[in-house]
Design a protein around this nucleic acid. Sequence first.
DNA 1: CTGAAAGCGCTTACAG
DNA 2: CTGAAAGCGCTTACAG
Lengths: 337, 337
Amino acid sequence: MSTRVRIADVAAAAGVSTATVSRTLSSPGIVGEETRARVMAAVAATGYRINAAARDLRRQQPRAILVLAPNLANTFFNRIIAAIQDVAGQAGLAVQISDSRAGTDMLETIVQCGRADGIVLLDGALRPEMVRNWKLPVIQLCEWNDDYALPGLQIDNAAAARVAVNHLADLGHTRILHVAGPSENVLSHARRAGFEDAMAARGLSPEIHQGGFTIEAGAAAAHAWANIADRPTAVFTASDECAFGFISECYRLGFKVPRDVSVIGFDDVDFAGHFLPPLTTIHQPRARLGRQAAERLVSALQSDTPLGAGYDQIPPHLVIRSSTSACSASKRRETDR
Amino acid sequence: MSTRVRIADVAAAAGVSTATVSRTLSSPGIVGEETRARVMAAVAATGYRINAAARDLRRQQPRAILVLAPNLANTFFNRIIAAIQDVAGQAGLAVQISDSRAGTDMLETIVQCGRADGIVLLDGALRPEMVRNWKLPVIQLCEWNDDYALPGLQIDNAAAARVAVNHLADLGHTRILHVAGPSENVLSHARRAGFEDAMAARGLSPEIHQGGFTIEAGAAAAHAWANIADRPTAVFTASDECAFGFISECYRLGFKVPRDVSVIGFDDVDFAGHFLPPLTTIHQPRARLGRQAAERLVSALQSDTPLGAGYDQIPPHLVIRSSTSACSASKRRETDR
DNA sequence: CTGAAAGCGCTTACAG
DNA sequence: CTGAAAGCGCTTACAG
């Protein structure tokens, strides 16, 4: 184990030059059949594995892309990362992942001294001075931060919120509560802005509860909602997790969904369709988002071309399941009194 | 962008040798203060980034570990990967992840021609001939396959099943159904064997439904359970997802948990404690599993020492929540008739 | 079809 | 404290 087999060892064992070994391994077709057999036997006998650092240095190719996510334990990122991995793998690039909240020193080490040639950044809350100082191509995904001055890709969050409001309004709801995400998050802002726009457009007055993306935030919001004298008949939450927490807590408090309140989530995580009730929610095409971001980055890397600027926005898609229903006549009367 | 800045460019800009630039970057302390300042200025001015391939080649260090999981979209792996990332990052190693089901060719390319020096393998269902042929250190995690002949780490799955049965039996349940995982999976076998052992030890006759790890499998199992004339009063499922599906379908069929049937899951995924009812389940310490496997692999890599053989087993831990309760006297009577 | 040789961009003993 | 030079393990034009 200690002294690793090199290409020279294989060459010696096969009685050929290192060039021939290299060719046998990378383009077998151009090597004589008998030679090739000898080389392959020598490779097997010696247990040779190519030294990737040497190959990469010589070939001067891009080698890896780094995915930076704020919380690797978050379900949401899984499919995105899988899609990135898929695209990168096809192109012969490795995918390296790191937690963007690992700490500034760690992050700088990973980015500056790391092995990646480009970055997919899923975190909009890093220090802009740090991100702007990174000397390799970066593409933002899902979250963004204008201060980074970087290209990006995301669904149209504001439009998604408008779609959610219109769905509820079309069902006859007039009192709609938005459980907003964390106040410092860009996604929260965009979704809240879209909510307010759409409510105004329908002539409805927006009600906002400052919540969060978590199950706990949703549960807390359910208590707040239950304590409102003239309770909203519909709720648009900032995330599916938040919706799960809201609905579960509603049941504990004796309310039912959608009988007592219609609920719309955001993200369409894997579990949304299996929840009780199956959750109406904004679909985030995570595989598509990951693939598209990776393709853009990989092609820039391979052609050694700048990434270009500007955000791509994907139009929203509402998945209607069972957590929303028409506002009952009785509730409407009560509300409109 | 096209011609990347090299250390020689920085040296020229600073009016020093490449050796001095290298030292300034790796051990600033041994360089004169004024020189260091000049070099740092030149680094900033030129936008220099070290070429990792060259550094790695020269230093002859391990560089990356590869994590191979059967389904990157599966929630279960998130915390494990985050923990591996944490340990590896501390040690200066990159973490690369790939889908172990990406296809044999792809997988061979990634492993044989990849940049990783060691592997954490979370899949027990790959072709043993392929895995045995890999020429770098591999540690199995969670799943295992004796035919790989590799060291591994997992919780004691059979003991976990016994703990689950004993909990249910202690609550007075005598008719207990096991919804088993996919028949070809090692985890299914170990859990089922533990279930049968524990049932025999308590003098109970085991009932088994051939299920799966998915929500859908759990839902199907609920139908099968509901159709049993003398229904078991407790169910031990092969996974939390399966338990979620089972419970949700029970509600749709008009049954309640734990009133009509107690349910125990397996894994303790993030959502288990937030489910309705909060799920009693076997806890898998995913962060610990990931950390421990990574530490073992990293230390072998850094000391250039073989990994050693043998499986480490972590004792099981049952998290008791609200999906299990005492078997009611009426049901016991009914059952014991 | 095959070999000799240059060179990818670093780091680090070795001198001074 | 600094520099000149060797060498890490590959790949690939260049000859033949």
